[in-house]
Computed example of a mutant assay.
Amino acid sequence: MKLPGVMRFSVSTWLIALLMLSGCANSGKHADELAQSAHLKHELVPTDSFVLTSYYRMSRPDLPLNFYIEGDGRAWQSRTSPSADPTPRKAMGLALAAQDPTANVVYLARPCQFTPMQQNPRCSSAYWTGKRYSEDVVAAMNQAVSHFAAAGQAVNLVGYSGGGALAVLIAARRSDVASIRTVAGNLDHAAVNRLHGVSAMPESMNAIDVAQQVAAIAQLHFSGSDDQVVPPGIAKRFVTATNNSCASHIVVPKMSHESDWAQRWPALLAITPTCRAKH
Rank of each mutant, 00 (worst) to 15 (best):
N193H: 15
I217H: 00
L52S: 04
T80G: 01
E135A: 14
V51C: 04
R74C: 01
A207F: 10
W128H: 14
N142D: 15
S146M: 06
M92D: 09
A216Q: 15
N186W: 04
H42R: 15
R237F: 01
P86A: 08
L63R: 11
H189L: 10
L40T: 12
L44C: 03
A216S: 15
P273N: 12
I180Q: 00
E135H: 12
K90V: 14
G159A: 07
G164I: 03
G197R: 05
P88F: 02
L220V: 01
R173K: 15
H30R: 15
K278D: 10
L44Q: 12
F148G: 05
A277Q: 13
C246K: 00
G224P: 04
V158T: 02
L157G: 00
I234L: 08
Q212V: 14
D72F: 02
G130C: 06
S59Y: 04
S12F: 08
V239M: 05
Q118I: 14
S22G: 12
S225Q: 14
R110E: 08
G159S: 06
H279N: 10
L96E: 06
R237T: 15
R79G: 07
L52V: 04
W261M: 09
R194E: 14
V168W: 03
F222C: 05
K278G: 12
G5K: 12
L269F: 02
H221N: 04
F222N: 09
N104W: 01
M58Q: 13
F238V: 09
D48A: 15
A35R: 09
S27N: 12
A109Y: 03
R79W: 08
Q36K: 15
V155G: 01
A95H: 13
D136K: 11
G5T: 11
A247S: 14
V11H: 07
G23H: 11
P61V: 05
S161W: 05
A218S: 12
N206V: 14
